[in-house]
Structures are given as C-alpha cells and as structure tokens.
C-alpha cells in the first residue's frame, strides 16, 4: 500500500474578507472548467482561507496564481463515512483511537457516500493507521475526472 496514493491535493487560497472575492475565485475555476468537489472557508478578522478539492488541482493553481491570488497545495486525506446517523461518530471514534490530531476538517455528502476531509500533521501515518483500522479512504485518482 502506497500511502501517497491516498494523499489528496487541496488548493488553499488566501482571500481578504470583502465582497466579490469568492466570486472571483469561483469564476476563475468555471472559466477553466474545473469542478469543485468540496469546499470550505475559514475566516479570521479581515481575511480568510478558501480551501477546495477540485478535479484539476494543477490547473486551478496555475489559473488562480496567474490572477494574483496567493495559492498553495495542502496534502489532505478524505475518509468515506456511512451516510447514516452515527456515521460521523464511527469515523471520529476511529480517528480518536488512532490518536490522529485534526488540524481542520470539512465534509461533503456525495451520491455514493459522505466524505470527511481532514488536514492532519502526519499524513502518511494517518493514512496507514486509518486503513489499518478498516477506514475507507478516497484515492486522489478518485477525484480527478477524466485522466
């Protein structure tokens, strides 16, 4: 098992907290026909970080960077949860048992399953220990559209 297959490239974009910034980011992704799979905004006083999983991270990075946005890639992992009551609890228990500290997290609920996206300090260790405990991780290949 190569843990790297399970690390997913999230794009993180710095944005001042003012009207129109999200529109500019989303508009740019649309222009490049990039699909957003999951998305969150973390906000602080006066600024925020837009985090997104997209089907074409490299293209998204290039486009946003060219527009003057501060963009970076962040390695995250995505765990499938059962989309039923208690699904998040199962996952949270698994992460707790594995001793994984979550830096931040967000979720989306897709057609097939609900997915919890996690930013953790030691990605490879987290991948191994989640799989060891029977967790179901998405592979980065699962997210990219047509190859």
């Amino acid at each position: 098992m190569d843990p790297r297959a399970y690390t997913i490239k999230q794009i993180s974009v710095f944005s001042e907290n003012k009207p129109g910034r999200l529109m500019a980011i989303a508009g740019a992704l649309e222009e490049e026909s990039i699909n957003i799979l999951a998305f969150s905004i973390a906000e602080a006083n006066g600024f925020g970080v837009v985090r997104a999983l997209v089907d074409k991270p490299e293209a998204a990075y290039k486009k946003l960077n060219a527009m003057g946005f501060m963009v970076s890639f962040t390695d995250v992992i995505a765990v499938k949860m059962r989309d039923v009551p208690g699904g998040l609890f199962e996952m949270a228990k698994l992460l707790s048992d594995a001793g994984i500290n979550i830096e931040y997290s967000y979720a989306y609920s897709g057609r097939e399953a609900a997915v919890l996206i996690l930013r953790v300090d030691q990605v490879e260790n987290a991948v191994k220990s989640i799989i060891f405990r029977g967790g179901n991780l998405l592979k980065s290949a699962d997210l990219s559209g047509s190859p």
Binding site: S12, A42, A44, F47, M70, S72, Y104, R119
Partner: peptide, 18 residues
Amino acid sequence: ELNPEAFSDKINDLMAIR
C-alpha cells in the same frame, strides 16, 4: 501584504503572523 512564501492554509499560522 503577506509574502506568498509565508502563506499557510492554517488560520492559526496567519493569525500568528498578524
């Protein structure tokens, strides 16, 4: 303005810079 090299996806890091 933040230097792009200093950008972090973690809010805490950015708050610390501020």
